[in-house]
Computed example of a mutant assay.
Amino acid sequence: MSVIVWSAVGSLAAWLWLLLGQGFFWRTDVRLPPGREPAPDDWPTVCAVVPARDEAGVLGESLPSLLAQDYPGRAEVFLIDDGSVDGTGALARELAHRHGGLPLTVDSPGEPPAGWTGKLWAVRHGIALARARAPEYLLLTDADIAHAPDSLRRLVASARTGGFDAVSLMARLRVESAWERLVVPAFVYFFAQLYPFRWVGRRGGRTAAAAGGCVLLRAEAAERARIPESIRQAVIDDVALARAVKGGGGHIWLGLAERVDSVRPYPRLSDLWQMVSRSAYAQLRHQPLLLLGTVAGLALVYLAPPLALIAGAAAGDAAAALAGALAWLVMAATYVPMLRYYRQPRWLAPLLPFTAALYLLMTVDSAVRHYRGRGAAWKGRTYARPDAAPEEG
């Protein structure tokens, strides 16, 4: 058998295993579990902590939705201005004055000390302020996340009914530009492939992940896991948070959001490239061998099928063409549910190898930036050698 045939067969075998043995990652039915709402006088106190750095462009769409929560219990919002230069803090106060709703506190912690990322330093400050209210839960949410009016009450009801220490929703990202349609659904698809949502929710399981845009965290679990001090250098802070909570014996849950949306636009490929490349190598713990394995794996699993089909058809190698076609078919079929979730046309599914090639290049670029000393750059800050998320288990 030729190398092309072996590659195609290997890819097909990998896809059959991914289809059946990777926690059914491709299914999109892991949504917020229904929860029984507490009695009218038993709703716990919740404090929302919103780290924000130069977010004036999106705050007008996101913050009013958080302030407008129809939560029956006591809730308060702490927006922590992380050294913004675009008037984020002033705009937040203006929006609160204009729209009303939940009480809002705007404060700033100053520049982060060595060993802290800016976001986690801001989260630390927000949690410290929130502790004065003795909340049972903390809602950690980003400044670009818009919440439906019942978002908080559903999160709390699900957490209480399910006994979860952390409930996280993968916010529905914006898909309006051509590049967003091509890249964004694949981003969530790849994330679910790495961290199957069904495995995340297993008690005693090793898989741990969260989506940093929306995490309802029990305050006691945060203290037990020393959040955020224990993950203060993590660039991929949401996964690090989940691992810390689960490592401390906590029960966590992660699923796709229905009415929690990111309003941040990524209209150009360069915007999406920056989003992925700033943390991709940190995900690989800055290990060259893991990088090589990832590149080889992406090539075999995503690029080999179309190449085998084309090469096999051109060379008259029916076995290579058939194996490549079947692997490509399975790949595309597993991508369709995510496209449906994002309300995108199914004809985008066969383009997944092209999108995977982009992600491969973004990952390599992330490593190149790291070794050039630029590391993870975000809004004027560069973390040259950020620590990767803690090991599982």
Rank of each mutant, 00 (worst) to 15 (best):
G100N: 13
G101C: 02
G101H: 00
G101T: 05
P103L: 10
P103N: 09
L104D: 05
L104K: 04
L104F: 05
V106H: 04
S108K: 03
P109L: 09
P109F: 10
E111R: 12
E111H: 14
P112N: 09
G115A: 14
K119P: 02
L120K: 07
L120M: 13
G126A: 12
G126T: 12
A128H: 10
A128V: 02
A132G: 15
A132M: 14
R133D: 10
P135W: 07
P135N: 08
P135G: 08
E136V: 11
L140S: 00
L140D: 00
L140H: 11
T141A: 12
D142M: 04
A143W: 02
D144S: 14
I145P: 02
A146Q: 05
A146M: 06
A146G: 07
H147V: 02
A148P: 08
P149E: 05
D150W: 11
S151M: 10
S151E: 13
L152C: 11
R153W: 01
V156E: 00
V156F: 03
V156P: 01
A157H: 07
S158G: 12
S158H: 11
S158C: 14
A159H: 02
A159K: 01
R160I: 15
G162V: 04
G163M: 09
G163V: 04
F164P: 06
D165C: 10
A166F: 04
L169Q: 13
L169G: 01
M170T: 11
M170N: 12
A171Q: 06
A171D: 12
R172Q: 15
L173W: 03
R174T: 07
V175P: 04
S177K: 05
A178R: 15
A178Y: 15
E180M: 11
E180R: 07
E180I: 14
R181N: 04
L182P: 01
L182T: 09
V183K: 01
V183R: 03
V184Q: 14
V184C: 05
P185L: 09
F187G: 00
Y189Q: 11
Y189D: 07
F191G: 01
F191M: 08
A192H: 11
A192Q: 00
Y195A: 08
P196V: 06
F197Q: 01
R198M: 00
